[in-house]
Structures are given as C-alpha cells and as structure tokens.
C-alpha cells in the first residue's frame, strides 16, 4: 500500500460551480471538478485518452442515471467520475481518478497513485 500524498490545489472560493479547473503537479496535469449541484468534488487526469488532448478540465459535468460524468469538449467522450471508465465508447481507455478533500476552505488532491501506471509499464518492459 502506498501512503497518501495530499497536495494543495486551490481554495474553494477560486472554483467555478459545476465545472472544472486544471491543477499543475510537477509535469502532470490534474483536472479538478466542483460539482456544486451534487455538492461533490472529483479529480481525474486532465488528458482525454481518446485523442490525447489536455482538455477534461474544460469539459461539461453531468450525470447519467445518477452516475456523475465529465464530457470531453473535443468529441464528447464521457467518463465516469467515480471509476473513470468511458461511458459512451467501449473502445476508449479509462481515465485515472484521484481522491479530493476539503480542509478549512482549501482543496487537496491525493496524488499518491499518480505515477503508478508509469511504474507498471516500466516493470513490464523489464520482464
């Protein structure tokens, strides 16, 4: 098990309502969403896996049969905010999701798992 690694992203007051922003973490980009209508917070990778565009933070939020989702502004691929799978294209890869917490009006993202996919692929290469 990896330890948590909470990073400070921004203040709640800076966030748009029912929308996302992009957070820089080293060379990584994380999309952070404040879904006010559900009073929920989510974070995912900013890269849309469909055409490799850094765009999900600019996508529209919504729900389908209660499941919260984000739609990429490029070709409207929609991704579940709870498990990251693509909801309208089975062939499209899933996106990574990250835990979010709010403390004293500040927003934190747990980036502990951010490099895990990279590590896995590196290990596979060695095998």
């Amino acid at each position: 098990m990896t330890e948590n690694n909470w990073i400070y992203a921004c203040n709640v007051a800076d966030m748009p309502h029912n929308g996302g922003v992009c957070v820089q973490y080293g060379t990584e980009q994380i999309a952070l969403y404040y879904f006010t209508h559900r009073d929920e917070w989510y974070a995912t990778q900013n890269l849309c896996p469909h055409r490799q565009q850094m765009a999900l933070s600019r996508g529209m939020l919504g729900s389908s049969l209660g499941e919260p989702k984000v739609a990429c502004p490029f070709h409207k691929k929609t991704f579940s905010l709870t498990d990251g799978h693509c909801m309208n294209d089975e062939a499209c890869a899933a996106i990574k999701i990250y835990p979010v917490k709010i403390q004293d009006g500040a927003v934190f993202i747990d980036v502990a798992s951010i490099y895990s996919s990279l590590i896995t692929s590196y290990e596979q290469e060695k095998m």
Binding site: T36, G59, L61, G62, S64, G66, T78
Partner: peptide, 16 residues
C-alpha cells in the same frame, strides 16, 4: 440559470 431550470423543470444533474 441552468440550476434553476434543472431544479424546477428537470431531474438529475444535467449533461453535455
């Protein structure tokens, strides 16, 4: 506003 319209006339959380 969208939320007013959604809460008055619709259901769920909207979509794209």
């Amino acid at each position: 506003s969208f939320d007013e319209v959604l809460d008055t006339l619709g259901s769920g959380d909207g979509c794209e």
